[in-house]
Design a binder for these strands. Sequence first.
RNA 1: GGGCGAUUAGCUCAGCUGGUUAGAGUGCACGGUUCACAUCCGUGAGGUCACUGGUUCGAGUCCAGUAUCGCCCACCA
Length: 890
Amino acid sequence: MTTPRRELPPRYDAAAVEPAIYERWMAADAFRPADEAPPGAAPFVIIQPPPNVTGALHLGHAARTTVEDTLIRYHRMRGDDTLWLPGVDHASIAAQFVLDKIIAEEGETRASLGRERYLERMWQYMDATRETISIQHRRLGASADWSRLRFTMDEGSARAVRTAFKRLWDAGLVYRGEALVNWCPRCLTTISDLENVHRDEMGTLWTIRYHLERADGTPDPESWISIATTRPETLLGDTAVAVHPDDERYRSLVGRHAILPFLGRRLPIIADEHVDRTFGTGAVKITPAHDMDDYELAKRHGLRAVTILDEQARINAEGGDFFGRDRYEAREAILDRLRETGDLEAEEPHPMVVGHCDRCGTVVEPRLSVQWFIRVKPLAERALASVREGRTRILPPHFEKVYAHWMENIHDWAVGRQLWWGHRIPAWFCPDGHITVSDAAEGPDACSECGRPSNELRQETDIFDTWFSSGLWPFSTLGWPDETDDLARFYPTTVMETAYDILFFWVARMMMLGLFCTDVEPFKTVYLSGMIRDPYGQKMSKTKGNVVDPLETINEIGADGMRFALVTGTSPGNDQRLTKAKLDGGRNFTNKLWNAARFVVGVMPEPLAQPEGEATLAERWIASRLADAVERATRQLDDLELAAYAASAHEFAWTDYCDWYLEMVKVDLRREGASDGERSRAWHAAEGALATVLQLLHPIVPFVTEEIWAQLASDAGAGGRSTLLISAPWPAVGQRDPVAEAEMAVLIELIRGVRNARMEAGAPASARLPLTVVPANAATRDGIERGLDYLAALARVGPIDLRQPGDDRDRPELVSSTAGAAAWLGGEPSAVSDAPSRQAANEAHLRRGVERLRLLLAGDFAERAPAAVVERERARLADLEAQLRLLTGG
RNA sequence: GGGCGAUUAGCUCAGCUGGUUAGAGUGCACGGUUCACAUCCGUGAGGUCACUGGUUCGAGUCCAGUAUCGCCCACCA
């Protein structure tokens, strides 16, 4: 039987090949779990953190997808019952922000369209972006089960949202009440504390005189109390002035009244411990409706709250002359007027912290309104206990402390949003003010308290914070609240991989809601990825123009190369700087694999015969190294040490397999007088080892390994491996061969030593130099003898005079010494100069080592350290001593 | 004002429960047209593991403190 010699294309064109491979996987339905769980298989489930529908794929998604895909591919190969469920988040506030901008270009606004048409427009937009996001993930190689693609606005999610909210309501964990909440005057909605991001800014502290009230109720031009404020425009809403009760300066004023400028409102001067005497003038204006502190204080003192800003932060009708002005215009106008009246006493720069809307950057305005809240304390306690007691662990572990701190100091969650795009809160008001919460899709039949029919009820117009539906994600995607087969089979999930910046937003909410709804932790491990930064450590952002587009990168270097770059050199919870050099490194690796395969396929012997003969040293060695590599990779992937896995698998493939083994295979394949059977055996070994390397690397570089696998499978040599690599089993850990490894270690050291010596001597690279080798002992000699051809080829030496141990007569000049053997390199005097210094340097180095170890072993170390450690040092000493004897002929 | 993290080769980063001579990639220097790969091969130089103390036979690793950078949380106008 003859097999025609085959050849792989000289260049691997990732951009062209990868999509075709993905099609192959899709066609084979390779991403879907089996219809039923294989008996005895452990579930391994990742519910994908849903990217926002608004965003194109960025490097953060790419990095996370790579981690998830690597894990899922590994577990799929392991034969686990794997499910990777992908999804998309509707991101209500972010989506509206984006859509508002789009319709603005069309000359429309939210108001001009109206709720219904606006939402229609949103769905159109969503349908397009959802598709884009899926396509982009596929280009990355994401082996998610696309047949289960979910969306947080689909009916499954909607039902979960209604059910969860109803249960929270029934459990008394929901309330509706007036509160001062964060309001974005641009997005026109409440936002949560988390979405209110604080930034340090330089503001101004103004000192303003409030004149005291005279007996006749008019302001006294001669007496006043000076207050300090950073927000003079809010004085229109002042209802008091507060001082510290122990402040001597103001004691006599407490109980009197000041008159508010412009509006003439009477402001009681009150005492409260909360006032900081050392700040400003020690007297503070109280604006309950526009300041969180003042609101609390006002509640204690029963003060009135006057709202003076409308929803767009313009002065409302309460503001007298300033009506209709923007808050900052009003500020200037008020300051001007105070200057005119001489009541602006001072102004000085003042560093302060200002809250901004996470989405649009607008300065957030505290706003008094009626809101829905979830009482999260009881939920947080359970979520905290789960992590404390180890039922869910967070990687890296120090984030458990961050998580705990947040859970311990959690505030009630203002869960309503005055937006349109999202799940409407399933609460209905009746004319008598009763509230009915219903989990039915069509709403309640009647008021739950007075029985008024549904046509008299009015549904709440607020929608839920996006994160409420996201918080139900791990189980709403599996059919909850129904007790579906999927839920039983795949819940709780295994790994929740996401970026640390949404630990509170999302992970915390999933923990709380998951425990509340399902009584079990929604995942076993939280794997927190870091952020991708530019080469200078800056966050990537469109405005900075330093964004690397993953799709462009994929088109340039292939998804595999990018995946590899995104995983190596990272650790959970730590940001990484991504450089061109790193991406190129990933690309080079796929190139290396391709070329190794090209070589293996290209050197298939003709004819390919029945293998015969004993395994060579190289074959035994690579089998043993492979066993080690598989064992390591398995452990690292089990431990979620992805970077370590990628690095060690890379090193094995490049160094052990390509640099050493393939070079030796060349010797075996081209050995004079070898039979067809022997050559075929050597080739099968190389091809088989390559196949294992592909299995080992498939999780991280799936495309190139799949493509090579296909090429191998179409060879006669690879019978029985015709299935797709994605569905192939994870390699079993093979047998180690300590003898082969030891012998090869000596040989490798010898080859390195000789190469080094040649370089130092300046011998021409092409020159074949005679070599004299004196092994340390008979066993070592056997090993070297077995590898004599490798030594000759890889060190470019010959003839080789392999002597008996101890025989160092008439040796040449240039020396290399290793643990197993000393070698003397001969040749033309011009080719090998500088020999004596090399001999001396080697000797000196060995003597230093011997001395150091003798000293160590003479001290306390020998008595106090564990026996195994001491033994290891003793062995090292013996080794060095033997080398020294070998070198000096002593 | 609290809390967390980082500080290891020129650069980007690994280094698990303390145990050989601290590693990788990249960059650098030198040498390579040997039939897989120059996106490559070979050889080499480069580190007081931020600093100061402590625990230990032994510390990059554990403890305390200091410095610099970064992040998170926080209702001082």
